[in-house]
Structures are given as structure tokens and as C-alpha cells.
């Protein structure tokens, strides 16, 4: 169990390490990346549930960005391992509810329900990949700065930022307690259910103590309710070109089925 917590702490910190990379994607301003990600998600979600071929083209964005940023795709799927099953489950009943035949592959009949299930799955995975790329290539402070710029309430933004920062504190405390527990409970897997109550209570109290010290440290260095955020940046020609290029491409892909066009021209 202690190893799991240590892995979680490493995972949390790995996001910071990924976000502080130096690739061309990392250099794009947080605001522009946020805008492009939002447009991408909106366009992906807006595809018709049977337009699988059109949607396929949208894979270009995450694929290209993974290649450019040097962020490993495997890390993305590893970190999203708990969310992906939920995404997969969204359209799971479509093949049962919608059995209208669409086409046949040999003797296998592909129904519209199956197509819509796969489309939904693709939409979910693409959106998750794009969101992951945003978070993995942008510092949380920079993202929060953008959120403040677009007038998201300070309370919510600070909450987001501190949750991100304090999650590691909570995990560290849990790790220390779990190690102490396992040293006095040899051969026992996990924590006995009888100890859950006091374990959680102690974890909460210890975390509060640590969080209180951290908060004091912030107060003593001029924190006054509005977190200082990294400069949001934005506005350079490169950023504008980046935003215009991708947004135009997304909208074009929504209007024209590039995959089908490509397929047709290859067939000719």
C-alpha cells in the first residue's frame, strides 16, 4: 500500500516535471493552449455519432502534439487508466439498443449501434488526450493565471491550485502513516478495517497541521487571498499563428470529411 502511495506522489510530481519541459508546445502560451483545447473538445463533441471517419482526422492534433512535445503517449494512458474505463462505458449499451445493420464485413454485421459506440469512445479518448496534453505541457500556475484573466472567481482558482499542491502533502502524510502501520503489522496486507476510522482521523489531523504551516508560510510571504500566478503571457505572433492554424483546421475538419477525401483520392 505504501508503494502505491509513493507511486501516486511520484505521479503527481511527474506532472510538474512534464509541464516544465522545453519543447515548442511548452513554449506556446497557456491561454492559447487552453483556447485551442477548448475549441478542439467542442469540435470533437459536435461530430455526428455515426461520423467515425470524419472524427478520425481529429486524431491528428493529439498525435502531432505528442510527437512535438516529447510527452510519452504511454504516460498519458497510464495516468488516465482510471478514467478511460468510464469513457468506454458511456456507449456500452448502444450496440444492444440500436441493432440497425449498417454494413457487413464478410458474415459479420456491423450495426449503427456499434459505430456510435466506437464514435463515442473515440470522442472521449480524444478529449482526454487533448486535456492531458494541455495539463502536461502547461504549469498549473500558468493555467490558473489564464483562468483568473478570464475572470474565473479567485476562490475557485486558488482552490484548484492549492488542491494540486496539497494533494502531495496529504499523500506524503498517508505514506508516512502507512509505513509506520505496516512496520507494526507484519504480514498484513493494507490496513485492517478496524483501524480505518482512527487512521483517517489521524491523517486528517496531520494534514491539517501541515497545511496550516504551509498556509502560515504563505501568509508570512505576503499572501493575501489572491495567489500570485505566473505571468500568463500570450499575444506573440507565434501564439496567434498557432491558435489560428489549429482552430481553422478543426473547423475545416468539421465541415469537410478529410479522411473520406483522402481515402477516395487514394482509391482513384
Amino acid at each position: 500500500m505504501s508503494q502505491n502511495i509513493e507511486r501516486s506522489i511520484r505521479d503527481l510530481r511527474e506532472m510538474d516535471t512534464l509541464a516544465s519541459g522545453d519543447s515548442p508546445l511548452h513554449k506556446v502560451s497557456a491561454g492559447v493552449k487552453l483556447l485551442v483545447t477548448v475549441v478542439y473538445i467542442l469540435v470533437v463533441v459536435s461530430f455526428d455519432k455515426f461520423n467515425m471517419s470524419g472524427l478520425m482526422f481529429m486524431l491528428l492534433y493529439p498525435a502531432l502534439l505528442f510527437a512535438v512535445s516529447g510527452i510519452p503517449v504511454s504516460t498519458c494512458f497510464y495516468k488516465l487508466r482510471f478514467v478511460l474505463p468510464l469513457v468506454c462505458a458511456v456507449g456500452i449499451f448502444n450496440p444492444i439498443l440500436d441493432r440497425t445493420p449498417a454494413f457487413e464485413i464478410g458474415s459479420f454485421v456491423v450495426t449503427t449501434g456499434m459505430i456510435s459506440m466506437i464514435t463515442l469512445l473515440m470522442k472521449g479518448v480524444f478529449c482526454l488526450m487533448a486535456s492531458f496534453l494541455l495539463v502536461a505541457s502547461t504549469r498549473i500556475e500558468a493555467l490558473c493565471a489564464v483562468l483568473r484573466k478570464i475572470h474565473v472567481p479567485s476562490m475557485l482558482v486558488t482552490l484548484l491550485l492549492l488542491t494540486f499542491r496539497y494533494a502531495a502533502v496529504l499523500a506524503e502524510e498517508a505514506n508516512v502513516m502507512t509505513q509506520a502501520y505496516s512496520l507494526r503489522a507484519p504480514g498484513q496486507k493494507g490496513i485492517h478495517y478496524k483501524a480505518w476510522g482512527s487512521f483517517l482521523g489521524q491523517l486528517l489531523l496531520r494534514s491539517i497541521d501541515r497545511a496550516d504551516e504551509l498556509y502560515s508560510s504563505m501568509l508570512l510571504r505576503g499572501y493575501h487571498g489572491e495567489f500570485y500566478y505566473a505571468q500568463a503571457g500570450g499575444g506573440s505572433i507565434r501564439d496567434v499563428l498557432y491558435a489560428v492554424f489549429w482552430c481553422a483546421l478543426f473547423i475545416a475538419a468539421r465541415c469537410v470529411n478529410f479522411t473520406q477525401l483522402l481515402g477516395t483520392s487514394v482509391m482513384r
Binding site: D16, S20, R139, R165, E172, R210, E213, L214, S216, S217, M218
Partner: peptide
């Protein structure tokens, strides 16, 4: 602070 871990909260 006595515990530097509790003082340093930025990455």
C-alpha cells in the same frame, strides 16, 4: 520554519 518541507510549496 523548522520543517523546510512545510515552508516550500512551489515546485
Amino acid at each position: 520554519l523548522q520543517n523546510s518541507d512545510n515552508q516550500m510549496f512551489m515546485p
